[in-house]
Design a protein around this nucleic acid. Structure first.
Length: 473
DNA sequence: ATAGGGTTAG
């Protein structure tokens, strides 16, 4: 990981004949001490509403000055930050000072939200150097600690800005800071969620150990999910035993992760073995454990066995949640048992749970698959009556439903509506349309839809081409 | 303050 470029030496002192030294940069305008004094006294009297009249007089310098001056007065500074953070004078430096203050007072939620705003507002800071420099230069004046680095890395990771997260860790270390386990965990999670090569996650894992940070149960859970996700079961299982060797006990999340991974690989029986192992280890399965198993049964067309599982949940007083019902509704839909799906849909409401957009998307999908578009649209109506609105997946499901039967005009109307409502069509949406044109026999339109993919910044995938390919045969 | 479950295409 070295980006060393050949270093070109420039003479430290230029020749006598050269230009005079550049003038020092202009000093920033001084803070308005008067204004700051007024603002502080308003804050001391808790008259936040009176601050608004001063808003237009504040400069970044005055705000920084106030932040710095009153940084230890918690009841004064927190309201000020909340008031100031969305105002125009609240610049990058103000944000950084606030991050130090907020993490010192453990007000992580606000801190993270400010850090994310900063990240979004500085897209040119691709590697996070600019923000890091500011954090470092304000660090000691704010009596900060390395946890501000954790917060920053976590915020980058939340936005899947992997490069910035990774580079911030490296910058921090090379400047003598100590990123904690949270920095590593969040960046590992971001790597895996953004489908970066798993080797990168592995490299960071080794890096954290070399830097003296011990992985915890979160670290292992994140990595196990990552390795199973790319079908590297041996590596995942290796970590599962490694964690125990290192004295880190797997928890329910670890077991649920393993079970779900097995289910998604079509190995329900292995998932059930893991389930049994849990009770041997004295760990109680929770509602998520059961949902994972129910979903696994549904995927293999074994809905008959769900009854026994639900019984067991009842015995153990584990209350089915929204996800449990959605899983069951979806399972019955896939089996073509609409009757049972609707029974559960009703049971949901009578148990105080509300069917949501996912429940309806399952039902709509099964109606589309049964080629009953009328009933599919009926469910869309029902959704609207319940103040639920189709999401991108619902639209894609409907577009596919209409396309499958060659109703392309309706399909494109739905595409329009989808865009109007702020959803971006995905590659799946376009592939459904392409397939539709092979149904209605309009090859030019199929190729046109293929063009729409690239126009919208996506790239066609195997499905796009294989759909087309059938047509040329 | 970080980890796990449910909806879409050939």
């Amino acid at each position: 990981m070295s980006f060393l470029k050949p270093y070109r030496k420039t003479p430290r002192f230029s020749t006598l004949s050269s230009h005079p030294p550049p003038p020092p940069p202009p000093a920033p305008p001084a803070p308005d001490i008067n204004l700051v004094g007024k603002a502080i006294s308003i804050l001391k009297r808790h008259q936040l509403y009176n601050l608004d009249s001063l808003s237009s007089q504040f400069t970044p310098q005055s705000a920084s000055y106030l932040l710095h001056h009153s940084q230890f007065d918690k009841t004064l500074i927190l309201p000020f930050i909340n008031w100031a953070r969305r105002r125009p004078f609240f610049d990058l430096k103000c944000s950084c000072i606030s991050l130090h203050i907020l993490t010192r007072f453990k007000v992580y939620k606000t801190a993270q939200s400010i850090a994310e705003d900063v990240a979004i507002k500085t897209p040119e800071d691709e590697h996070g150097d600019l923000v890091f420099k500011l954090i470092k230069s304000t660090y000691s004046d704010c009596n900060s600690s390395s946890s501000v680095i954790d917060l920053l890395v976590k915020s980058y990771s939340n936005l899947k800005l992997v490069k910035r997260g990774l580079n911030t860790i490296h910058l921090a270390i090379s400047h003598g800071f100590m990123p904690g386990v949270l920095s590593y965990n969040s960046v590992l999670d971001a790597i895996i969620r953004s489908n970066e090569p798993i080797e990168l996650a592995e490299e960071m894992y080794f890096h954290m150990i070399k830097s003296g940070i011990s992985p915890n149960v979160f670290t292992y859970n994140i990595l196990i999910r990552g390795f199973f996700g790319v079908r590297e079961l041996e590596k995942g299982l290796e970590l599962f035993s490694e964690m125990q060797k290192n004295g880190c006990l797997p928890n329910v999340v670890t077991y649920n992760t393993l079970m779900d991974a097995y289910c998604k690989l079509g190995r329900l029986d292995d998932a059930l073995k893991v389930f049994d192992k849990m009770s041997v280890r004295d760990l109680e399965p929770n509602v998520i454990s059961y949902n994972v198993i129910l979903n696994g049964l549904g995927r293999e067309g074994r809905m008959k066995e769900t009854g026994g599982i639900l019984e067991e949940m009842k015995r153990k007083r584990i209350v089915p949640d929204e996800v449990t019902y959605n899983t069951l509704v979806n399972g019955y839909c896939k089996e073509g048992n609409f009757h049972q799906a609707l029974v559960l849909h009703d049971e949901m409401t009578s148990n105080g749970l509300s069917p949501n957009v996912i429940t309806y998307t399952s039902l709509i999908n099964s109606m589309c698959k049964a080629r009953n578009l009328h009933r599919a649209m009926g469910f869309v109506e029902q959704m609207r009556d319940r103040k639920l609105f189709p999401n991108a997946r619902t639209y894609t499901t409907l577009i596919d439903g209409f396309s499958q039967q060659g109703f392309m005009e309706e399909a494109y109307k739905l595409l329009d509506e989808m865009k109007r409502n702020g959803f971006s069509p995905s590659i799946v949406t376009y592939n459904a349309l392409i397939h539709g044109h092979t149904v209605d026999g309009k090859i030019e339109d199929a190729l046109g839809a293929l063009d729409h993919i690239t126009e919208s910044g996506l790239s066609p995938d195997v499905v796009s081409y294989s759909t087309d390919y059938h047509w040329f045969l």
